[in-house]
Design a binder for these strands. Structure first.
Lengths: 164, 164, 164, 164
DNA sequence: TTTT
DNA sequence: TTTT
C-alpha cells in the first residue's frame, strides 16, 4: 500500500537468553522474549498494580542477530525497533493458531543495548568515505556493543565482519 | 518494570468501517482493522510482490473513540499510536487462543486522520490558560477532525465535549 | 555513546517545492520545509488557536532524495523519519549561527508520501531472493511513489536504479 | 494542520545535572542537555570515528519535571519523547538567534529512566477504577522512578502528588 | 478487509 | 512557506 508505516518501538528486558536458530544458508535467526511493564496505583483500592506485557521478537537482520547472540542475555535491557507481523501456524492437534511478532527484517530494524558497563551497545558502522561534516552513520540496522568484560576483542571481530 | 517503552506506530488504511461497542458505563470502545503493506521487486523473478499486514486496533481513549466513530470509515488512511497487548481467550470449542492488539488506552495514544478533503484530523484541544509563548497543546491523545462533508457541526459538538 | 537513539518522526505538509542540490559526486541532496501544526481551543478566551511549527529536512539518502525530487511538491503531505542534527555556521557578518535539521543520512531514514491520488508512495524495494514467507522488504530507507499523473514510467525508471 | 505529527524520541545521557526554573505559578520547568552518539569505522582511513549530538530538552510536563528534578543527574541514561519546537530570541547584542528544542508540553511527552539500580523509572500512575482486564495506565506523560538508593520515600511522596 |  |  502506498504510504504505510508499520513500526514497533520497545524498551524492555529479556526474559531469557536469546534463542539462536542456524539456517541452511548459514545465516542465523535470533528470537528474543522481551518484557515491558507499567505500574500504577489503583485509585479504588489504593494498591499498587503492575501489568507486564511479553513480546516475541524475531531478528532476521544478520548484523543485529550477531550482536544479540554474542552480547545479550537474560535480564539485559534493550531498545528494539521492528515491525509487526502475524503468522498463522498449526499446533500438534492441527488447530489454527496466530502469533504476532516484532520482526527485524534483513537490513532493517534497530537494536541498542542499554545496560551500563559491559553491554551498552552503540551504533557502529563503517563509512565508505567522507561526506563533509556529516560523515557519520550512513547505514541502518547495525549495533556495535561496547567491549564486554575483558576488552574489545569480540567487538573488533564483529567489526571485521560488518560488510560496509 | 522500570524504564520500559511499548509503542506501536501505524500509518495505514481501514479495511472496514469502525466497530463500536457501547459499554455499560456509557463509554464506547472502537475496534479498527488497519492494513499496512510493503511492496518490492523480487530479484530472482523480477516480479513485483506485495505483503499486506493486518492490525487489530482497540480504542479505549474516549475522545479518540468518538473521532473514530464519527469520522472514520472503510478506506480511510490514519496515523495510529498505541501499545501492544496480547490477550488470551477461548473459542467456542474451549481452545486457548491469543490475540495481539494495538491498544489506545484511556487518555493515551494518538489518532490522526490523513485523508485530504473532508477528513484530515488535526490535534484539537482546549487550553486551560496561557503558558507564555508555549501555550499550545498541553493535552494528549486528542484528535479533532475537520468538518466532514456538510460542515463543522459535529466537530463543534465534539469540541464542546472535550473536557479540558 | 553506547545505546543511544536519535529519531524524529514527522507527518506534515511541504511549505514549498523541494530544493535540490547536485553534489560533485553526482549525488543529489534534497531540502524540504515541512509544517506541522496543532490547534486547540483556548479555555480563557474560548477562541480557537493554532501553532504551526516549521521543520528543515535534509535528505542525503539517495533513493529518498530521488523520490522527493521527482514526486513531492508544495503542499504534499509526507511521513518523514530522520535524526536531529545541529550544525554551526556563520552569516555574512561573521556571526555564529546554529541550525537544527532533521537529517535522513545515506541508507537511513524513511519517507512516505501520504497524499491519495497520484502521489501515495509505498515502500518499494527489490528483494535479493526468497526468505521463506518473510521475503518482503529487507531493505531500509526506500520509498516508491505511485505513478503521479501521467503514469508509472518514472516509477519504473526509479525502480531500475535501486541497487538492491 | 490537520493530520500532523511532530515527535522526537531520544535515548541518551545527561551531560550535566538538570536545570530547574521555578515559575511564578509555582510550577517548575526543567532543562536537560542530552547527548546521543553514533560511532563507525571510516572505510578510507580505517579509523574509528564518533559523532556526538547534543539535544536541549525542556520539560513543562509537571510530573515529569518533578521526576527529572528529583531523580536525574549528570550521566543518567534516559528515554525521552517530546516534540520539536524552534524559538527565536535575541542575544545581548540584539542579534536574532534561533534555538530548536525537544519540548515535553504539559500532560505530554514521556520520560523513562534507563539506569539499572537506583534509577530505573517505570510508568507509575493511579487508575481511577477498573477497566476490565485492561485497567493499567490510562494516563500519559508520567514516570515513576524506582526507589533510589535508600528506599521509596521520595517515590511515595511523588505518588501522592500525582493528581489522577 | 484496505490501499497502490 | 503548508494544511484545516
Amino acid at each position: 500500500m502506498a504510504g504505510s508505516v508499520n513500526k514497533v518501538i520497545l524498551v524492555g528486558n529479556l526474559g531469557r537468553d536469546p534463542e539462536v536458530r542456524r539456517l541452511n544458508s548459514g545465516e542465523s535467526v535470533v528470537n528474543l522474549r522481551i518484557a515491558t511493564s507499567e505500574s500504577w496505583r489503583d485509585k479504588a483500592t489504593g494498591e499498587r498494580r503492575e501489568r507486564t506485557e511479553w513480546h516475541s521478537v524475531v531478528i532476521f537482520n544478520e548484523q543485529l542477530a550477531k550482536v544479540a547472540e554474542q552480547y545479550l542475555k537474560k535480564g539485559a535491557k534493550v531498545y528494539i525497533e521492528g515491525q509487526l507481523q502475524t503468522r498463522k501456524w498449526q499446533d500438534q492437534a492441527g488447530a489454527e493458531k496466530y502469533t504476532t511478532e516484532v520482526v527485524l527484517q534483513r537490513f532493517r530494524g534497530e537494536l541498542q543495548m542499554l545496560d551500563g558497563r559491559g553491554g551498552g551497545g552503540g551504533a557502529e558502522i563503517e563509512d565508505s568515505g567522507d561526506f563533509g561534516q556529516r560523515s557519520p552513520l550512513p547505514a541502518r540496522g547495525a549495533a556495535r556493543p561496547a567491549a564486554s568484560g575483558g576488552g574489545g576483542k569480540y567487538s573488533s571481530d564483529l567489526d571485521d565482519e560488518i560488510p560496509f
